[in-house]
Amino acid sequence: MTSLSRDDVAKLAGLARIEMSDEELVALSNEFTVILDAVARVQEVASADVAATSHPLPLRNVFRPDVVIPSLSPADALSGAPAQEEQRFRVPQILGEE
């Protein structure tokens, strides 16, 4: 049986950039014990000689000619922005102070 502790879930939530309350972390950790048990069944038949399928279509890279076509205006592109400034998306600080 695989299980995930509260701290394991907290680490995953950090990687996924989701703040979580202690209550939520504990609840998820309990649920994952059951869910992981169920999904681990895939290992019963996934032997080394079976190839992996990532996609239903046998796709190669798809190319198109590099031609200029109309695109969104700056106003349209910014229309859903939570905050904007000088025709740009205004975002919180990304880099730390020097």
Binding site: L12, L15, V39, A40, V42, Q43, V45, A46, S47, V50, A51, A52, T53, S54
Partner: peptide, 19 residues
């Protein structure tokens, strides 16, 4: 998808998809 579990979970699921 995390390192160390990828083959056991996502990788195995992709093989089931083939089957």
């Amino acid at each position: 998808l995390s390192s160390g579990y990828y083959d056991a979970y996502y990788g195995s699921a992709q093989k089931v998809r083939t089957l």
